[in-house]
Design a protein around this nucleic acid. Structure first.
Lengths: 212, 212
DNA sequence: TTAGATACATACACGTATGTTTGTAAACAC
DNA sequence: GTGTTTACAAACATACGTGTATGTATCTAA
């Protein structure tokens, strides 16, 4: 095959990742063949092995294309909680839900991660990364919730670590169930869904014991 | 191999399902081999193919062992909402969380379903069943929430279909995230988690539009 | 202008999962 | 007690995915 220029090669890489999204989504990650991906991109496995070590490398690269921007968004939120942390969290949560609902790449990759990926010992590195990422996310959420608590937006007796867990669970759960359902416009209801959850935090009963 | 009695054969079947739980959990459903399952049970693939048509049949049988009892529990709740539907829903939700936290078989199978199974066109029958089951669950939750609404436990402006979606999402999300985290005693916090969510429903803002 | 590196395509060797078929010893019907 | 069916084990044929090795045409740098 003819050698392409650097830019053409980079474009080939993107096309392979696009193809991986489609194939992973259609067949599931483990049933997807490197040949499937190559063919979908109009290439051969030679191109795949040139740009990536193996299927796992493709998978992580594909995830990074959507997760890195979202992580940056949360980082900014933590860096400056602002005068209304709870309201800002509401809007950020709603914004994430809207992204899932409206950006097709985000939709597809979330569907792949939530429904078409088997985490097991074989992909231990990926699991460890994911666990670290999730833990960091919870810590950040807890930090923002504590800021809200200091401003009196949340009762003092609320355990912010547990509340962060609940918030994170709620968001993931809403994304997961909506992706499975698709019967209403998530973007329209995103604000209400988030506001209802925070109303619960504001009127939460006292905790039975400390978390952890 | 020697022929076994009917009871012995039924026990063999159970052992195969136990083995399937372990192997699916360890390797993921699609990476799990029928030979893996047979060996784990101390048998051969001959036994597997005698009791089940293929891997999909084993998977559904394994799921049924835990999902059927839980579905029966929800059915009973719908048949008689009682004088305090919201309180009863709180206790039922907490009970499910406790089951996930304390019953090892429930824990394992939920982990398999949530983290170690790839839903795709290849297993379309399983997906269709699951979608129907989930839809039925949401309808039942909505029914109970409407009963609570008639009793004044939830504001009249709340869309019960959307609230059922939120509740279901919250439960699944909590189960999923706790299974991934495992850093606190879920059974201890189950009541607080559910009560906090229902506090949100009771203080929910008016909806922006109709769901669906 | 040419030597080497690049960006793939093609071909091969290997392991391995699957479905099926055949074998077989014990249980059960009679 | 004999024949048949049951509940598996063992062996076989087939297919398929992976990794790697090799081929090659083009780009690029000197």
């Amino acid at each position: 095959m003819a050698r392409r220029t650097k830019e053409q090669a980079a474009e080939t890489r993107e096309q392979l990742l696009d193809a991986a999204e489609r194939v992973f989504h259609a067949k599931g990650v483990s049933r997807a063949t490197l040949d499937d991906i190559a063919r979908d991109a109009g290439l051969t496995r030679g191109a795949v092995y040139w740009h990536f070590d193996n299927k796992t490398a493709i998978f992580t690269a594909m995830c990074d294309r959507v997760s890195l921007p979202m992580q940056a968004m949360l980082d900014a939120q933590v860096a400056d909680p602002g005068p209304d942390p709870l309201g800002q969290l509401t809007r950020d949560g709603a914004r994430i839900l809207c992204l899932v609902a409206n950006d097709s790449r985000t939709t597809r990759v979330f569907e792949i991660i939530l429904f078409k990926t088997e985490l097991c010992e074989v992909v231990a590195e990926v699991m460890a990364e994911e666990a670290e990422r999730a833990a960091r996310c919870r810590r950040q959420l807890s930090t923002v919730l504590q800021a809200a608590q200091r401003l009196g937006q949340i009762p003092a007796h609320v355990n912010c670590d547990l509340a962060a867990f609940a918030l994170n669970s709620y968001l993931i759960g809403c994304i997961r169930e909506w992706l499975e359902l698709r019967e209403f416009n998530l973007a329209d209801q995103a604000e209400w869904l988030m506001q209802t959850f925070y109303a619960g935090l504001q009127h939460a009963p006292p905790p039975p014991a400390k978390v952890e």
